[in-house]
Design a protein around this nucleic acid. Structure first.
Lengths: 237, 237
DNA sequence: GAGTGGTCTAGACCACATG
DNA sequence: ATGTGGTCTAGACCACTCA
């Protein structure tokens, strides 16, 4: 044990082999007993790793038959995982760019303060970014973070444009989970201009509250995605 | 054991207690050791149940502290669970109605046939329904199912308007998982009329492929939701 | 019948938060 | 120091699929 649990290492290992193509779509994984032997752990530990791969829809389990790489697992990222936009887009050959539109300390609007559970008078760092993929603007992201938790975020550059990587690296803040609400809205003139589409075009709007390890709200983010941007969800049972 | 696994019964039990308000938001659950004793199972079995509640975002676990009912668990359903619209809306006091617009056997378009993995010439049962909540039309659903699997579905009425319940009850088909893709689109004239909104209003469009136990595609469904309809997702790690 | 995943046990030790 | 959840073991038996 080196800090990261065994099941996590196994998950990463298998996940990497799937994304690398070593385990091709529809290929059968080694049996759980064999994997347990190979990794030198108990079968329950292997099952914990494979269970997460199944949650991601990267593999499909069939009782009495085996576990198989999902048919569409090729370029796809894990579903229902809390990942940064940067991570989401990596693996694809497309180039991701981030344009920083705003970085400032603000007094939050009441809805933002409520979402973050801030006390009266607490301020937020607001970071507004436009994400481009292969030169096309696809997503406008407007994040609000408690200034008290990240007191120098307004003066630092983000690591490779990634807010989440910056939080983990510089503030030792491990992201744990997020609740996200999604709806369709019409593009305002400003959004239309930024995303290079016609005003009143349909957009996918998300509102996300991100929580840390310690279960404290770290970020409230609104984002708007171009109509050709798709969001995938995996549902079970 | 009576067919349903112990962890499932524990999951249902706790889930019901949360929805009934017996376990109020932010209340602490009994410790895992105590629950194991109460249910007469090993602690690992209790953990399996609680793990699913955490996936649902119905409870939050905090190491060293305890497990707590989510603050917003009140009227909310489990997130990321494959549930029917009918189930989603139950629990709320609002009345759900279903208007059957179309039920017919059709030759599927190529994209539908591909999504269902049908052989050439195979036909589908198409079921188009408008769902109303408290009298307001909120969702148009257009489902396609392999006619070969459900040969009498075009002649039978749905049980309480619920397709999923009908499949489970009359065809002994247990739904297992679904992959869903979501995007924003502009309302056509027909959709606008059905959903009682202005043409070109932004809509949330979902495309869902539902798979059974045996991992065969059971349904390809497109649905369009009014702009005030929100979709919630829970992301982890 | 052989092999697979699904469920379950009765322990153990660790990491963490709190009093 | 105590109690919590997090990880892990080394088995066991069951349910299922397929040859």
């Amino acid at each position: 044990m080196v800090g990261t649990p065994a099941y996590r290492r196994i998950y990463e290992d298998l996940s990497a082999r799937i994304h690398a193509g070593e385990l091709a779509p529809n290929a059968q994984l080694p049996g759980e007993a064999l994997l347990a032997e190979q990794f030198g752990v108990a079968r329950m530990t292997v099952r914990q790793a494979i269970g997460q791969l199944a949650d991601d829809a990267l593999v499909v389990r069939r009782q009495g038959v085996g576990t198989f790489v999902a048919g569409d697992a090729a370029g796809r990222r894990s579903l229902n995982r809390l990942t940064s936009f940067t991570e989401d887009m990596s693996g694809a050959a497309r180039k991701v760019e981030t344009e920083l539109l705003l970085r400032a300390i603000c007094d939050p609007k009441p809805d933002v303060a409520a979402a973050l559970g801030l006390t009266a008078g607490a301020r937020v760092v607001r970071i507004r970014r436009l994400r481009r993929v292969a030169g096309v603007p696809v997503l406008l992201n407007d994040s609000h973070l408690p200034y008290g938790l990240f007191p120098s975020l307004d003066r630092e550059d983000l690591i490779e444009g990634s807010l989440y990587r910056t939080l983990e690296t510089r503030y030792d803040t491990r992201l744990r989970r997020a609740d996200q609400r999604i709806r369709a809205v019409a593009a305002s003139r400003e959004l239309a201009r930024l995303l290079d589409i016609a005003p009143r075009s349909p957009l996918l709007r998300s509102e996300r509250i991100t929580l840390s390890d310690r279960n404290t709200a770290i970020e409230f983010a609104r984002s708007w995605a171009r109509p050709d941007f798709e969001l995938s969800v995996h549902l079970q049972r």
